[in-house]
Every structure is written in structure tokens, then in C-alpha cells.
Amino acid sequence: MDISLQSIALSASHVPFLKEPKKEKQIIQDEDMKALLAAPPDTQKGNRDRMIMILLYDTAIRIAELLELKIASLKLKSVPSIHIHGKGDKERSVSITDATVSHLKKYLRQFHPEMLPDQPLILYENQRKYCSNVPWKCLKNHQ
């Protein structure tokens, strides 16, 4: 009610309110991730599934971006990275770890010995392109 405090009250009304923090997402623990990556059997399909999980975990790319990867998208020398053509027609390079590089090389020897640049990287089976729910299925199968 004191008129002398009105200017202070007016100044304080321009200060934005604190935003309520967003709900934190659960993070998978290291032991759980190791168990998940060890779950696929050492078969051709199991190695493919493991590579899908490793790429999704290491790069945090979208499944649609994973589905579009080509052999030419890989840069495995000096500074290893994957070139992504993403949402909104944007392109970016995503760094990958040395462990992912070694898994990728093993995968490429098994699935792509001819290393044709325009060949899809992962997601083909019986000449049919996978749809976006296949990576989720492979995760679910190996839980």
C-alpha cells in the first residue's frame, strides 16, 4: 500500500518466473547396456542387431536417419564420424567412438565385403528395406 514501493514492485513484475524443470528421463546404466549389447547371439542376424543398437546408442541418431545410411556415409579414418542426412533436409556429421569403429569394421566385413558406396549400410534383408519399427523389434527381442 506504500506508494514509494510501487516502482520496485513494477520492476520486480518484469522479472521472468523460473521455469519448472522438465521431467528427467531415465538413463540406461552401463551394466544394463553391456547386458543388452551382449544379448544378440553370434549369428549374422545377431551381429546386425548388435550393430543397430551400438549405432543408435553411440550416435543418438533417429531411426529414420539410421535407415537412410549408406556405406559412403561412413568416415572411419583419422576422426571417425558418420555423415547424416536428417530431418528437415539438414546434414550433419556425428562423431563415433573407436569401439564403434571396430564393431562397424567387423560388421562391414561380414555384410558388405564389396563396400559399394551407394549400398545401404545396415537395414536390408532379402532385398527388402526395413521399416522404422525393425530397430525397436531387435531391441525388444534381445531384452
Score class of each variant (00 low, 15 high):
V79L: 10
K45A: 14
E114W: 01
I84D: 00
M51L: 15
S13E: 06
Q6T: 02
A12R: 14
P120F: 06
S4E: 14
R50E: 08
L123D: 01
P120S: 12
P21E: 11
Q26L: 13
T43R: 09
A9M: 11
E114A: 11
A38M: 03
I52M: 12
S78R: 15
K70H: 04
E24S: 09
Y130M: 12
S93G: 02
L55K: 00
H112A: 03
A72H: 10
R62M: 00
M33Y: 11
E68A: 14
S132E: 11
Q119M: 11
I28R: 11
L116S: 07
E125T: 11
H112L: 07
L66K: 05
S13W: 03
F111S: 02
A12H: 12
I61W: 03
K105E: 15
A72Q: 15
H85W: 01
K19P: 00
L55I: 14
G86K: 04
K19M: 07
G86D: 02
W136Y: 13
T100C: 15
Q119F: 07
S73R: 03
E114N: 13
D30K: 09
A38I: 04
D2M: 01
V15T: 10
M115F: 05
D32A: 13
Q26T: 03
S102V: 07
D49Y: 01
Q26M: 08
S93P: 00
K105H: 07
G46S: 09
A60P: 04
P40Q: 06
L121A: 07
K137H: 09
E91W: 04
Y57W: 11
D2I: 06
A64F: 05
L10T: 14
L55T: 04
I84V: 15
Y57A: 13
E68L: 04
L104M: 13
S93A: 10
C131H: 11
L66M: 10
V134F: 04
Q29G: 08
C138S: 14
W136V: 11
R128W: 02
H83K: 12
L66C: 10
V94P: 05
D89A: 09
P16H: 12
P21I: 08
S11F: 08
E68P: 00
L139A: 06
V79W: 05
K77N: 12
A64P: 00
V101Y: 00
L10Q: 14
Q127N: 14
L56P: 06
H142G: 08
S81C: 14
S4H: 10
L108H: 01
V101D: 02
E125F: 08
S78K: 15
L5W: 12
L121N: 07
H83S: 13
P40C: 02
L74I: 05
C131F: 05
G46M: 05
I54A: 08
L121H: 04
F111C: 03
P135T: 09
A64G: 05
D89V: 00
Q26V: 10
I27G: 02
L74S: 06
L139C: 11
D49S: 04
I96T: 06
H142Y: 15
K45N: 06
D118E: 15
L56M: 14
Y107D: 05
V134Y: 12
I84P: 02
L69G: 03
S78T: 14
R48N: 05
T43E: 08
T100A: 15
I63G: 00
